[in-house]
């Protein structure tokens, strides 16, 4: 029953993403989607296939829910972040928003840990927070690089 929350959340996120006004243009969003899908499927594979830092539940229902979490929820949350951050004016608001965002990201993971979908082994919360933040920063720099190319081609002003 609880797994329904994950399905509902993913559908709501997809709907919200398409209806909200975005700061990144459509090419930047496609770029972000491709990069984030690649990065997160690799990141999760390294965690629970290569090194067994995470153990994922064997229940089929929860396994599908976890797949939705890694393939839809996490990349979409990141895309929300990159689309909202340019709307903020001051540096302080950007810092607060970033901290809040990392909190939301970890909050999702924490719920899955509490529900027994993810079981940590030789892994701690701070490591998740660290890696989520590293990915956040690295993908942002990649986005800046792509934006620079768009600017040279005269497609984007920023």
């Amino acid at each position: 029953m609880k797994s329904q929350y994950v399905f509902i959340l993913s559908i709501l996120l997809i709907m919200s993403f398409f209806v909200t006004k975005k700061k990144c243009n459509v090419l930047e969003n496609i770029f972000l989607f491709c990069v984030l899908e690649f990065v997160f499927t690799s990141y999760f594979a390294i965690l629970y296939i290569n090194h067994n830092f995470w153990e994922i539940t064997k229940s089929i229902e929860w396994f599908i829910a976890f797949r939705i979490y890694e393939v839809i929820i996490v990349p979409l949350l990141y895309m929300f972040y990159y689309n909202l951050i340019p709307k903020l004016q001051t540096k302080l608001s950007k810092v607060v928003y970033t901290l809040l965002f990392v909190g939301i990201l970890y909050g999702n993971e924490y719920i899955l840990v509490k529900w027994g979908v993810i079981v940590y082994s030789n892994w701690n919360a701070w490591q998740s927070i660290l890696f989520l933040s590293i990915i956040l920063t690295s993908v942002y720099f990649l986005l800046l690089g792509f934006r620079h190319i768009l600017k040279i081609e005269g497609v984007s002003q920023r």
Binding site: L27, C34, V35, F38, T41, V71, E153
Partner: peptide, 28 residues
């Protein structure tokens, strides 16, 4: 095609391949 489209086309295929392998070839 311009560089931006070139990058997106290349990324798209890498993403589709990675995603399908992750869904079809990972444990379970």
């Amino acid at each position: 095609i311009p560089w931006s489209q070139f990058i997106l086309v290349m990324l798209l295929s890498v993403m589709i391949a990675r995603l399908s392998d992750h869904l079809l070839a990972s444990p379970s």
